[in-house]
Nucleic acid binder design. Structure first.
Lengths: 240, 240
DNA sequence: CGGGGGGTTGATACATGTCAAGCGATGTGG
DNA sequence: CCACATCGCTTGACATGTATCAACCCCCCG
């Protein structure tokens, strides 16, 4: 196993394993003092159970939230009341950045499994920015990453064939997990087929069929919600 | 000629009409001194002609770009070399924020018509953030807006029916123009049907047919690339 | 005037949505 | 601990929407 991507594990201070800095996956531009200031800033929270909400549309924005462990989905409601999934969020990712501008959350964020969250009160974070200039750049980077992630998603959804969308979806998850240091090719989907279908803009039966088809082709292996990627290259070829 | 774009107005200091601050649509939290610092920062550029590139994938990131007048599209290339449109950008919007993190542009940005651009060197901008704390918050807000805009797009593309996607696409453009002060219901599409189809993940013939169908229904009126929205309510009902 | 790109429209094949039935896993209460 | 209910998932049959191929028109530009 000499996968280069495994090397891209996050270089964060081991001393700070469970704090917000780690969760934020900040580049390590902060010195010891700044780190302890960050630590003071972070609010602990009881872990979310599956189905618990972190915030809802219309909630006042107070904090950013970093996922320390677990996964979440965010969704909005259409006028006729239907759920529209806008994203899945994995360990190490940050939620709530779309609310900074108008001070109000614009989507619902719900836990897909037991999930531990780090709360970062935003006013304190902005205040700390003044004292720690490098934090400014870090925050800019985090938001930039989120924007790029979203653009990547848009690119993903813009294909006409469902096969491509599925492939891109799976590869996207795969890459995100690799970045976090996953050491095998197994995707442990925490969301339902319905959620995936909703997200990709296809019927959930089609998701099921596409996965089955890819399994027939030997590209992957399905065990309930565990998907073992057998042939990443071919998946990439499909994704285009 | 009563082109809506000519009416476009932003609520910023009139003294600063053609500078970067105006283009950025910053909340007016800056005082006179800060404004003049911003002005010094901004680089003028010759206007882009239709088809000119602002940046390309792989270009080193140096500046953010604010559109003062005109429109652009951004796109990436799939492995097999096909264009994949990731977004359209109108007057007053900012490009390049996805490049902050890795210092490299991740998409191509090309002008869809004659377009005037304001260049904001990013290192200078971050430096100015130190001296003008409120600018920090403003920049956070701008990036937050971009993130929310992208989420909105994701929401848009996640519907199974093409009719919904078209409706959401049109409404999205409509809202963005309204925000900039447009005073009628005419969308002046600067992109081709191909671009729209590519962006929405449908064949361009389908775009054409959907528009024709909506015209038959009396929802809108098509005159080449000018689309007159006659019944916004119904469009919203379709969008769901 | 001619050429070319963009746009519309039509015919056809095919992929995907929809409806329906059944299976499997999971969790709950007796 | 088991039985049951529920939810999620798979698979099949069918109808429909959309991609594809093709012809043609229109408008802009050289």
């Amino acid at each position: 196993m000499n996968n280069p991507k495994q090397e891209t594990k996050l270089k964060v201070r081991p001393a700070c394993e469970s704090c917000g800095v780690r969760a934020l996956c900040l580049p390590v531009s902060l010195d010891g003092e700044a780190l302890s200031l960050m630590d003071d800033l972070v609010k602990r929270r009881a872990p979310l159970k599956k189905g618990d909400y972190l915030f809802r549309t219309g909630d006042k924005f107070k904090s950013l939230f970093a996922i320390q462990y677990g996964s979440m989905k965010s969704y909005g409601l259409t006028i006729d009341g239907k759920e529209q999934v806008t994203g899945f969020h994995l360990t190490g990712e940050v939620l709530g950045m779309d609310a900074i501008d108008e001070d109000v959350h614009h989507c619902n964020a719900v836990a897909l499994e037991k999930t531990e969250i780090c709360e970062l009160p935003f006013s304190a974070l902005e205040h700390l920015q003044n004292e720690v200039p490098s934090l400014q750049h870090d925050l800019n980077c985090i938001m930039s990453r989120e924007i790029r992630r979203d653009h990547h998603m848009l690119l993903m959804l813009g294909s006409t064939t469902v096969e491509q969308r599925m492939a891109r979806f799976l590869l996207n998850l795969y890459e995100r997990l690799q970045k976090r240091g996953a050491e095998n090719n197994i995707l442990n989907l925490s969301m339902t087929r319905q959620d995936i279908g909703n997200y990709l803009g296809v019927a959930f039966e089609t998701v099921s069929r596409q996965l089955a088809h890819m399994q027939d082709e030997g590209i992957l292996e399905i065990k309930n919600r565990n998907i073992h990627l057998l042939d990443v290259d071919r998946l990439e070829a499909i994704a285009g």
